[in-house]
């Protein structure tokens, strides 16, 4: 019985989020447009995440290189190091890692902010003063996430590769120039495009889940914490599901 109820709740929520995303798409094109607030959100979401995304990307690049080095040396293939790490980071680790970090930082932030605005009637106050709160709060945030995540991903990729290059430079006598030449020898736009494309979807998922959870929260102040938590859990899960779908699709194109 408990299982059935849980399943029902799960599908109910999935449906609600889809409807919320649909509402986003229908209201997105209708004026008035909140340009100023959109720019402010891009600044808050993008700029304020640079430090965190950079730090995790840098560490990831270093760790990945340190971990794979011994195995590659054993096979006498250490010259493959840069291209291998480059492909791994650009195709998979950069986008997914950045998306997960952002789900934690941005998704929870949006969820908690909107939930507390809802609880303290600020969303109603906006409605009463003639500003459509869905446009002002939801559309700007979702759009800012969607636009900023690919930027953060490219930035994270670069920092990761830099970390990796530093390790190679210290441990393996590989100059920076040789390292990056090697990286780009095997890396082309066919690798970059799908990963940028899926970053847009990751950003959209993080924004829409955070906004949905916050905007529909109605459990008082104790609900604020739970909203932030649920936003992170659901959007992280969605990042993996979307990644899975994206890889399946790009795989078809590689086969062609």
């Amino acid at each position: 019985m408990g299982m059935v109820v849980k399943l029902k709740e799960y599908f109910h929520q999935a449906g609600e989020i889809s409807l919320f995303a649909w509402r986003f798409l229908t209201e997105f094109f209708r004026p008035p447009y909140e340009w100023k607030e959109l720019l402010r959100q891009c600044y808050l979401i993008g700029n304020k995440s640079f430090g965190l995304v950079g730090a995790t990307g840098f560490i990831m690049g270093i760790v990945l290189t340190l971990q794979t080095r011994p195995t590659l040396i054993e096979f006498g293939a250490e010259s493959w190091m840069p291209s291998m790490v480059g492909i791994a980071i650009v195709r998979e680790i950069g986008p997914v890692l950045t998306a997960l970090i952002c789900a934690g930082k941005i998704g929870s932030g949006i969820g908690a902010e909107l939930a507390s605005m809802k609880v303290t009637e600020q969303i109603d106050a906006m409605e009463v003063s003639g500003t459509n709160p869905f446009k002002y709060l939801v559309i700007t945030r979702v759009l800012a996430c969607t636009l900023m995540l690919p930027v953060l991903v490219v930035y994270s990729d670069l920092i990761s590769l830099l970390g990796s290059a530093i390790v190679e430079n210290i441990k393996g006598d590989v100059s920076f120039q040789l390292y990056f030449n090697n990286v780009f020898l095997y890396l082309n736009f066919g690798d970059l495009n799908p990963s940028i494309l899926k970053s847009f979807f990751f950003g959209f998922a993080i924004g829409i889940v955070g906004c949905y959870k916050g905007y529909t929260s109605d459990k008082g102040t104790e609900g604020v914490g739970r909203t932030a938590n649920a936003a992170v859990v659901i959007s992280s899960m969605l990042v993996f599901v979307l990644d899975f779908i994206a890889v399946l699709i790009t795989d078809i194109f590689y086969e062609l």
């Binding site: 605005m117 303290t120 009637e121 600020q122 109603d124 106050a125 906006m126």
Partner: peptide, 8 residues
Amino acid sequence: FQGSALYD
């Protein structure tokens, strides 16, 4: 509004 609802 009861709780003032100032945009914080």
